[in-house]
């Protein structure tokens, strides 16, 4: 037999029962009670009717002019898109372009490195000194050839020393 105490207890659970929040013994007790007690069954119906009423009447009308505001923003040429991302096809083309540009840079860098004038070696510096000396000496004419031979010998010696062969 249902008692007033049962009804008070169950009514405290009806909100959770209507949302299917009760588990195990509490759920069974609420279900059995509502099946047997007309007053509590009516009470449960008011929870369901409230949800129906909210669904039926709860929606509001959006403000007039909402589209105009959105339209003005999306068509404003001065605006930066909030989350701008190009389309998939465009993204692929951009990636290919970036890869080609990177490859071109690598090739250009490599070429410029190969063509770059090498810094003068020790041998070159010695050669420059001797050639200059030869030019000065050849003005007199008498020791020009001898000076030239000495210069070439000194050059070869310096080159070999630099290469670690001596």
């Amino acid at each position: 037999m249902e008692t007033r105490v049962d009804c008070e207890y169950i009514r405290g659970l009806l909100a959770d029962f209507s949302e299917d929040n009760l588990l195990g013994r509490a759920a069974r007790r609420a279900r059995d009670h509502v099946a047997a007690c007309e007053a509590c069954a009516d009470e449960l119906k008011t929870f369901e009717a409230t949800a129906d009423l909210v669904r039926e009447k709860g929606l509001r009308e959006p403000p007039v002019g909402l589209w105009n505001a959105v339209y003005n923003r999306i068509t404003d040429p001065a605006r930066a898109p909030s989350v701008a991302r190009p389309a998939a096809g465009l993204r692929l083309r951009l990636r290919i372009g970036a890869a080609i540009a990177a490859l071109s840079l690598v090739i250009l860098f490599g070429l410029s490195y190969v063509r770059r004038p090498q810094p003068p070696s020790v041998a070159n510096a010695v050669a420059a000194e001797y050639v200059e000396g030869h030019a000065v000496g050849s003005r007199d004419g008498l020791f020009a050839d001898r000076f030239s031979l000495t210069s070439v010998a000194a050059l070869a010696e310096a080159e070999q020393r630099e290469n670690g062969r001596l």
């Binding site: 959006p62 959105v70 999306i74 898109p81 909030s82 989350v83 991302r85 389309a87």
Partner: peptide, 17 residues
Amino acid sequence: AELAQDVFVRVFDSIAT
């Protein structure tokens, strides 16, 4: 009203994704 605008602008901007 302001945020509903923001939602649609963001949707338009990122619809490609």
